[in-house]
């Protein structure tokens, strides 16, 4: 292996990466697991919405949410892949990643609002549409990244193009600082993408 030419090595690494992504793409959960995940999420939502904890309420909620999850089981579970220990992963997501995300986004949101106030008063804008790269490949990950970019200071997502090798995001930037794609990506995405790579693929 050590005498392999350099270009061949790069090619093999690229093929391995693509095989891994195809593996992710085809390796979906079976149907009954999707139904159970949807049922748990909808039952928690039912208990929050209907305030009482009477047994009649719980009975109706269980039946109704089971029927709904039989009908709509692949709505938000189509991007979940089994990898590693499920319980540890779920606990880590709930107690570590989601509070981190809320903490980061709260401060970014307030900062972006104050920036809009500054721009609205001073009118020192220099808008333009730029293109940045992203390493995320799943629908849900790209969507959450795009929505987070919309809420961070000075940027608005126009379109996303999803591909297996690289995804691109078109961003309307209210104050264009640089036209270089990687520098712009580093400024716009910040630490969000590294954070999202923990959960989505």
């Amino acid at each position: 292996m050590s005498r392999m030419p350099l270009y061949l090595k790069e090619r093999i690494e690229e093929i391995n990466q693509r095989a891994l992504l195809f593996n992710y793409e085809t390796n979906t959960l079976p149907k009954w697991e999707k139904v159970i995940i949807t049922w748990i999420a909808l039952a928690i939502f039912w208990m929050i919405v209907s305030v009482s904890i009477h047994w009649q309420n719980i009975l109706i909620g269980a039946v109704v949410t089971f029927l709904v999850s039989l009908l709509m089981y692949d709505m938000f579970t189509s991007d979940i892949r089994r990898k590693g220990n499920v319980a540890i992963k779920a606990l880590r997501i709930i107690f570590l990643y989601v509070p981190q995300y809320i903490f980061i986004m709260a401060f970014r949101l307030v900062e972006s609002n104050l920036k809009v106030l500054k721009h609205a008063i001073l009118m020192d804008i220099n808008p333009g549409i730029v293109k940045i790269d992203s390493d995320l490949h799943s629908h849900t990950g790209l969507t959450i990244l795009a929505n987070s970019i919309t809420l961070t200071p000075g940027t608005l997502t126009i379109d996303t193009v999803r591909g297996l090798d690289e995804s691109k995001i078109y961003v309307h930037w209210i104050d264009v600082e640089t036209l270089d794609r990687e520098k712009a990506g580093a400024i716009i995405k910040g630490g969000l993408e590294d954070w999202l790579k923990n959960i989505f693929w």
Binding site: V116, H119, A120, P127, L156, H172, I174
Partner: peptide, 21 residues
């Protein structure tokens, strides 16, 4: 500030910035 931004910005994309955020 959002209302001010929607009233003052020059085109629809910058107005969307103010409105959304």
């Amino acid at each position: 500030s959002g209302g001010l931004g929607v009233l003052r910005f020059p085109d629809v994309y910058t107005r969307l910035h103010a409105s959304t955020k």
